[in-house]
Every structure is written in structure tokens, then in C-alpha cells.
Design a protein around this nucleic acid. Structure first.
Length: 871
RNA sequence: GGGAGCAUAGCUCAGCUGGUUUAGAGCAUCUGCCUUACAAGCAGAGGGUCACAGGUUCGACUCCUGUUGCUCCCACCA
């Protein structure tokens, strides 16, 4: 074996081996299932740190489930991501000099599919580098033929049930992508804007004005009223009056409504029903006309009368100048306010009135809310239940149509008069049309729009098993409900909530038992990783540099449950070092020469046997609670500290001496068990080392399909002895360090407890003791340093002048500490109410603590006096 | 504006339903070691008024209230 572990080559070798031997494939059988559906990454995506965290966690859950005897199935796939992909394709076409507007729908879709075939699989390939144990035969895409039909069928079904309708409402418009967005796709950001104070001339004989304040002066051209608060005395005299919109002189009424905030600006609001949701509502209430001054691309429309065809932001500046020139602009103030941006294109959102398709939510939300509140579906961390409840209780109708081509085309058919039917095919539509509108003409045209991406992804846990296409098939029966969904909290509404709704609506059952929400990956300064900051490392480069195991380790070890994690390359260093530690531990073991009568350490093997079981139970508990980074820490310590630092040092024979075959076999076996325990976290190196010590080379064995033992009983007593041994060893090393002794300097230990069998296990290697003597009570050795552990005293002989003053001080400090401790314990015990009220076990423990402390104090006193006498 | 969460060592965090010591870990720091698996290593050390102020209790890092500071989600302000 090389001196250092080198992951390159090893990782791809084992991934191929796993695939060739179909270890990740799953078919229904008599084992219980453990299923995860991957949150399908966008076809446009490349792997980033968020994916790394997310998929590593899923991989751990899947691999562990398989080790625990479940039939584990992890389903991969991608999401067509309508708006994001369409934007990419449009961009690609532009680079090639093709304008989307010159293409037919079919031509555009041909390009889009080409693009998807070329780039759509990249992200899945990258997951293989991470080691993900996905069942590739089950790969799904949200626009696969069956999946597409399932989405359309669900639309039709909900329409028939009366949950889907068409209507004109104020929606969020993305002028860049030129499509409607759902509420969830709008991100509000604080921006610095100007607040323009503009005066409107009143329709009187005198030179009278009313001044309003607005951040969007370009919409002045769409004003149809000015609104003030009914109890605002400043404006009482204007009742029933009119004003003129500056520049275009439209005569508009002054209206009164309690919606107005009198303290903002001048207390007078310009009302533009076409371009603001609140203004729209005011308009409805006061029956105001609507003047839509913007085109769909964000330029001024004909209705604006001025600046026609110019961009809204250009016009904002121009109109301010013109207002100023004509004496309408009173002043400009700076203001922080929040603007909506498109999640996908980052364009500033326009509230816009338009005809869209909607899905009513209340009846879908009800069972989905109950399931989470009653913990039928468990959220980890549970705090997200609150967020979820709040949204579900205030849920609004879902805008599901998008003015795009890439996606599931809405199955609605219209005649020339805008009358429509919903049907899967044109044929069906014609039939329906005849029935519905017997005397109308019908040259039918299908709706040009597609459905929101999430209207397909909410069916993911069902349709990846063909739960719509073939509802009674064996796979859906066996795998659904899935076990755990691992996802980011950002998409709790977009996706998680809606999958739960779809699950109850169409399967009458939850889609998953639990949802684990990961944190956000941030850089070490706590900033969110983003392209624009350039603080996101290239994952593939990281894997090349450190190996996937080390990267997995790095991202997990910093990842507390439910909190954001601060990633730093240093953590991958730690992971790489851990790899190397494992590698070298095996190098040591394999380097032993083994004979029947070589060195045996029966205590050490007993101790580690117990330790292994104890820690595995601990890891089980942590994993049950999804405390994944804590579980990894526990494995890490078990291997590094318990196995390498203590166990291996205990069983290491003297230089060039052989090890006994019993101890050797036990050690190999421990190592194998440790690899299995670690495997879900670091799959590649554990497979490599597992194969390295494998005995039967003939069968297609892998650590992937090796079961974890489920022992639950272990020897508590030997663990206590081990702790004592560790304490003693540490104390001896401390003496060495304090006395600045070289490794070669002679040192000896006297002990006096006959009942202590573990003492024999203090091998010279642990502390480099030159001799170990049991002594009889009466003859305490001279010139030694006393160590008091749990009331027993040990003596260390260092063969050099002892600094008695320093030793006295050390004993004194320890004595003081122990006395303080005893006092606090005694305070409790002398309190009658404590003894009366506290749990009897607690009282018993406190009594034990007191007597231990007393014993220790006595021993310390004795040694202190002896030292003082010598002085 | 509504809601949720966090505050423990220089940094990142454990410490679950009050009593395992007078609070732990990893990283970082310092000291000593090229000791025959690993310097990507070994051994040892230092470092905390558990944000602040009250309260409940025999007993509070842990429960309650308030204050301060930070984070997130939702609603959305012309």
C-alpha cells in the first residue's frame, strides 16, 4: 500500500463496479421499501454546492436503509423547468442569430428538445461523481410522454371537478420572459428609489393644485383618480371635485377611501388601476376606468399617449424631466421600498391585468395541512410546520398558466368567439364543443399557453412510478408513499406543499413519511453562495482536488440540522485527512506479522467490541432524528479516537514482534465493521478498503449490499474500565509533557489495586512505560509523582529530580477543585427539600458523587502530606 | 405590519423533556515530538459571568417574562 491515499481512479472504478453489478437497482420484493424521489434538478442546471449537500444526504439515507435491510430505491430525474429552459433556449438562439418571434411553435420546440438532449443530462452525470446510489433505470423527465399525459389528465380532472377556471385578474407579469408568474415566483428586494412629488391642477377657476407622491411617475399617464382619506382634514374641501392628469390633461375624480395612509407622502394617492394591485382594488370599489399604459414587454402603450414604445425605466426619467420643465414636479425624495423581481429572469415585475388559468386551493389544502399538523408527515426541523401552516391557512388561488412554449400545453380549445372547452385531443374537443355550443361555429384552436412547471412537479412522487399512467401497477403500490423527501426550505410552497396536496387528491395518501429540510450553503463569511459574488466553488474541481468522499465529509461535518452551513475548503482538508487516516490504519494492520502465540490483548478487544456497539446505537439514534452531521462526528470519533488512537495502540505489538492471531482477526473484523458504519457517508474509500480485506474474492460482493449488524447488548463494565485506563494514560502523558521528558527517558508506574485487570492493558506503547509494578500497600515508592484517579492512587517514577513545589501546587489545585465540587454536592444533599422532592435516582447519584469526592479528597490529602513532609 | 427562530471558547456548533461533575467537541492557537501506520501525523496545554435583566424552583445553559442584537419566512407601503 502507498503511504497516502489517492482517491483519483479509485472513485470512478467503484462507481462503475456498482453500476455493472446493478447494486442500486430496485424491484418490488418482500422486504420493506425505503424510497426517495430526488428533487428533480432543472435540465438547465449544473451541480452546485446546494445539490452536493442535498444529494449527499439522500445518498446517506438510501445507503443506510439498504444496510438496514430495506429495499432501497432512489429515483433520479430532471425537471423541464419551463421558464428557465425557455430563457436558455431563447438565449442560445439569439447567439445563433435567430429571433424566437420568427419561429413557429413547432420550430421552437424542435430547438428546445435538441437543447435538452444535448445539455439536459449533464447534471445527472455529475451526480455519479458524487457517488449517488441512484436507480438509473428509473430516470424520469417531467416532459416524458407518459408524464406529459399525466399532467394533462390532472388538469382536465381538476377542471371537471370545478377547481380550475379561467379569469381576468391582476397577476405578476415578467416583461422579460413575457409571461405571468405565480405569487411564489416573485422575489421582493429592497431597493433605493425616488419618491416624486407631483402636483395635479384642480378643475377650478383658480390656480389650485393637489400634490401626490409616487415612485412610478410613468404610470401617471394611466391615472384615473386621486384618492385621499375620508377623515383627512387637509382635503375635506375637495369633495366632489376633479383634477387634471399632468401632461395629458385627463380629468379625473378625487375619491375618498380609508385604505389611504394619511402619514405617507402628502396623504393623497394617484390611482392607476391597471398597474398596481391596490389601485386595482380601489378601482373596482369606486368603479374607475382602467387605462393600461404598458405593453407586455414593459414599453409604453398607445393608451399612454406619450412616450409610446419607450421602455418604462427610460420613461420614468424622461417624464420626471418633463414634469419638472412644465412646473408639475414639486420635489424628489429618496426612499427605500421593496420591488418584486422575477425569480427566473430577475426582471422587475409589473402587476398586470390579464386572463389566466387558475387553480382553486382550499379543498386541496385542507387534508395537506392536517397531515403535517398531526405529524402524519413529519417535518425536520419541526419549526417549518409553522411556516407551512401559515401559508396553507392563507392560501390563494394558484395562477397556473404561463405564456411560454416549453412545457405542458394547456388542453383548452377555443372557437373564434373565445368560447372554449377543455379536452385532451382536438377530436374530443370538437365533440364536446358540439354538445356545449350546439349552434355555434367552431374552428378550434388550442390554447397557446403552457402550465406552470410546478403543476407537473407536484405529481413527481406518483408519476415516477407511473401512478397516473398505470395506477394499479406493482411499483406504485410498493414504493408509495416514499420514505423521506430531502429538499431546501425555499421550495416548501412551490413544491413540498403541492406534492402533499396532489398525494391526498390522487392517491388518498401522503407522498412521503418525512421531509428533511437542509440549510443553505453559505461561504465562511456567512454570505449566500451566488454566481454574482463568485463565492461558490466549482464542485467538480473540488472533487478532482479532494475526492468525492472528502467533499462529502466537508459539506456534512459543517451542516447542523436545520441551520445554514458555513462552507470552507478547510473542511474538505479535514475530510481528506480522514481518508488518509483510514488508509494508514489498514496499512498498519496489514503490516503486522501474525503468529499463534504473538501478542494478544484480550482486554482491548473486549473493550472495543463494547465501544463499537455502544457507538453504533448512538449513531442510530442520531440518524433517526436526522442529526446527520452529529452522526458523522460520532463515526469520525469512533474511528479516529477510539479505534486508531486507543485500540490500535493497545494491540500494537512491540517493535518487530508478531501479533497474536486472535487479536489480529478481531482487529480486521473491527476494521471491516467500521468501514460498513462509515460507508453511507464516504462510499468510495470504504468500498476500497472493504475490498482490500475481503476474503471471498469470488462473489459479486460490495460494501453496498453488506448488512449492518444490529447488536444491542454490550459490556458496560469493560467500558468503565476502559475509561479509567484512558484517564490514567492521559495523566501519565501529562506528567511526561510537564516534565519535558524525551520519549526515551525512563518512566515507571506503580499501582496498588488488585481488582484492576485493565491495568495490564496499559501497554508500553500507550505511554512508553519502561516498567509497570504492582505494589503492596505499605511500601510506597519514594521519589514518585502521585496520581489520584477515582480514589485510587498511582505512582509515577520519573528517575529525575521532582519539582516538589510544583507537585504540591498541582495536588493543591486538584484538592481545591474537588472540595468545591463536594461542597456543591453537599449543599444539595443537606437541603431537605432536595432529598424530599428530587427523583430518588438523582439523590442516589448525588450521594455517590459525594462519596467519590470524599475518597478522592482523602487520597489527595495523604499524598499532599507525604510530599510536604519530604520538603 | 404579521409570524418563526437564534444568541454557549477566537470560529463553527453539541448540550433532547431542569440535577453526569464548577459546561463539551471539531477547527484555530500555544508547547513538545521526523516515536518503527499516518507531519494530511502524535502527545500535551491554554481558552467560557452560557447576550442582558428579572421570575419560577430545593436546584436554571436548560422553563417563563421583558430588553438588546442578529437571521429567516409571509404580507406589502403609493
Amino acid at each position: 500500500m502507498e503511504k497516502n491515499y489517492n482517491p483519483s481512479g479509485v472513485e470512478s472504478k467503484w462507481y462503475s463496479y456498482w453500476i455493472e453489478n446493478r447494486f442500486f437497482e430496485s424491484q418490488p420484493d418482500d422486504r420493506p421499501s425505503y424510497t426517495i424521489v430526488i428533487p428533480p434538478p432543472n435540465v438547465t442546471g449544473v451541480l452546485h454546492m446546494g445539490h452536493c449537500l442535498n444529494n449527499t444526504i439522500q445518498d446517506i439515507l438510501i445507503r443506510r436503509a439498504r444496510q438496514k435491510g430495506y429495499n432501497a430505491c432512489w429515483v433520479p430525474g430532471t425537471d423541464h423547468a419551463s421558464i428557465a429552459t425557455e430563457a436558455k433556449v431563447v438565449g442560445m438562439l439569439r447567439e445563433r442569430g435567430i429571433d424566437k418571434n420568427t419561429l413557429s411553435r413547432e420550430e421552437f420546440l424542435t430547438y428546445a428538445w435538441e437543447w435538452k438532449e444535448k445539455y439536459g443530462g449533464i447534471i445527472l452525470q455529475q451526480l455519479k461523481k458524487l457517488g449517488c446510489a441512484l436507480d438509473w433505470d428509473r430516470t424520469n423527465f417531467t416532459m416524458d410522454n407518459d408524464y406529459y399525459n399525466a399532467v394533462i389528465d390532472v388538469f382536465i380532472d381538476l377542471y371537471k371537478k370545478g377547481h380550475i377556471y379561467r379569469g381576468v385578474k391582476m397577476i405578476h407579469w415578467d416583461p422579460k420572459a413575457q409571461t405571468a408568474l405565480s405569487d411564489e415566483e416573485v422575489i421582493y428586494k429592497e431597493v433605493k428609489s425616488n419618491l416624486y412629488y407631483v402636483r395635479y391642477k384642480l378643475d377650478t377657476d383658480k390656480e389650485e393644485y393637489i400634490t401626490i407622491a409616487t415612485t412610478r411617475p410613468e404610470t401617471i399617464l394611466g391615472d384615473t383618480a386621486i384618492c385621499v382619506h375620508p377623515s383627512d382634514e387637509r382635503y375635506h374641501h375637495l369633495k366632489g371635485m376633479y383634477a387634471f392628469v399632468p401632461l395629458i390633461n385627463r380629468r379625473i375624480p378625487i375619491i375618498y377611501d380609508e385604505y389611504i395612509d394619511m402619514t405617507f407622502g402628502t396623504g393623497a394617492l394617484k390611482v392607476t388601476p391597471a398597474h398596481d394591485i391596490n389601485d386595482y382594488n380601489l378601482g373596482l370599489k369606486h368603479r374607475l376606468p382602467i387605462v393600461d399604459v404598458l405593453n407586455s414587454d414593459g414599453t409604453m402603450s398607445k393608451a399612454a399617449e406619450l412616450f409610446i414604445g419607450e421602455d418604462r425605466f427610460v420613461v420614468r426619467k424622461k417624464i420626471a424631466k418633463q414634469l419638472e420643465a412644465e412646473g408639475f414636479l414639486v420635489k424628489i425624495e429618496e426612499l427605500m421600498n421593496s420591488n418584486g423581481f422575477s425569480e427566473r429572469t430577475d426582471a422587475v415585475i409589473e402587476p398586470r391585468l390579464s386572463m389566466q388559468w387558475w387553480c382553486k386551493m382550499p379543498h386541496l389544502a385542507k387534508p395537506a395541512l392536517d397531515a403535517v399538523m398531526k405529524d402524519d408527515i413529519q417535518f425536520y426541523p419541526a419549526k417549518f410546520k409553522n411556516t407551512y401552516r401559515h401559508w396553507m391557512e392563507n392560501i390563494k388561488d394558484w395562477c397556473i398558466s404561463r405564456q411560454l412554449w416549453w412545457g405542458h400545453r394547456i388542453p383548452a380549445w377555443y372557437n373564434e368567439h373565445g368560447e372554449f372547452v377543455v379536452a385532451k385531443t382536438e377530436q374530443e374537443a370538437q365533440q364536446l364543443f358540439t354538445e356545449k355550443y350546439p349552434n355555434h361555429s367552431f374552428t378550434l384552436k388550442q390554447d397557446e399557453d403552457v402550465l406552470d412547471t410546478w403543476f407537473s412537479s407536484w405529481l413527481w412522487p406518483i408519476e415516477v412510478f407511473k401512478g397516473f399512467t398505470n395506477p394499479d401497477n406493482a411499483a406504485i403500490q410498493y414504493y408509495y408513499p416514499t420514505a423521506t423527501l430531502v429538499t431546501a426550505p425555499e421550495i416548501i410552497f412551490f413544491w413540498v406543499a403541492r406534492m402533499i396536496m396532489a398525494g391526498y387528491e390522487y392517491k388518498k395518501a401522503k407522498p412521503f413519511d418525512a421531509v428533511y429540510f437542509t440549510g443553505i450553503v453559505r461561504d465562511k463569511q456567512g454570505r449566500k453562495m451566488s454566481k454574482s459574488l463568485g463565492n461558490s466553488p466549482d464542485l467538480l474541481e473540488l472533487i478532482d482536488k479532494y475526492g468525492a468522499d472528502a467533499v462529502r465529509f466537508g459539506i456534512l461535518i459543517s451542516s447542523p440540522a436545520g441551520n445554514d452551513l458555513l462552507y470552507d475548503d478547510k473542511l474538505c482538508d479535514q475530510g481528506r485527512n480522514f481518508n488518509n487516516k483510514l488508509w494508514n490504519a489498514l496499512r498498519l494492520i496489514k503490516g503486522f506479522s501474525v503468529t499463534k502465540d504473538g501478542y494478544e490483548n484480550e482486554f482491548a478487544t473486549r473493550w472495543f467490541t463494547a465501544r463499537l456497539i455502544e457507538q453504533r446505537l448512538q449513531i442510530d439514534e442520531l440518524m433517526k432524528q436526522y442529526q446527520i452531521s452529529e452522526a458523522l462526528k460520532a463515526v469520525y470519533k469512533l474511528i479516529w479516537d477510539d479505534f486508531c488512537s486507543w485500540y490500535l495502540e493497545m494491540i500494537k505489538p512491540d517493535f518487530e514482534n508478531p501479533i497474536g492471531s486472535a487479536t489480529y482477526q478481531a482487529t480486521l473484523n473491527f476494521f471491516r465493521e467500521l468501514m460498513i458504519t462509515l460507508h453511507p457517508f464516504m462510499p468510495f474509500i470504504t468500498e476500497e478498503l472493504f475490498q482490500e480485506i475481503r476474503e471471498e474474492k469470488s462473489t459479486f460482493t460490495s460494501i453496498c449490499n453488506t448488512l449492518l449488524k444490529d447488536e444491542i447488548h454490550f459490556d458496560q463494565e469493560v467500558l468503565i474500565q476502559g475509561d479509567l485506563l484512558i484517564k490514567l494514560t492521559t495523566s501519565i502523558r501529562e506528567v511526561r509533557a510537564k516534565n519535558q521528558m524525551k520519549p526515551k527517558d525512563e518512566i515507571g508506574l506503580y499501582y496498588n489495586t488488585a481488582n484492576d485487570t485493565s491495568i495490564e492493558a496499559i501497554k508500553k506503547t500507550l505511554t512508553r512505560l519502561n516498567y509497570l509494578n504492582c505494589l503492596i500497600h505499605s511500601e510506597k515508592p519514594e521519589g514518585t509523582i502521585p496520581l489520584t484517579i477515582k480514589g485510587d492512587t498511582y505512582y509515577i517514577q520519573v528517575h529525575r529530580e521532582i519539582d516538589i513545589e510544583a507537585e504540591i501546587k498541582r495536588l493543591h489545585d486538584e484538592l481545591n477543585y474537588t472540595r468545591g465540587f463536594l461542597t456543591s454536592v453537599n449543599n444539595k444533599l443537606s437541603n431537605e427539600r432536595f432529598v424530599a422532592n428530587a427523583n430518588p435516582d438523582v439523590v442516589k447519584k448525588e450521594r455517590q458523587k459525594a462519596s467519590d469526592a470524599e475518597k478522592k479528597i482523602a487520597a489527595l490529602m495523604e499524598e499532599l502530606n507525604r510530599l510536604k513532609a519530604k520538603k
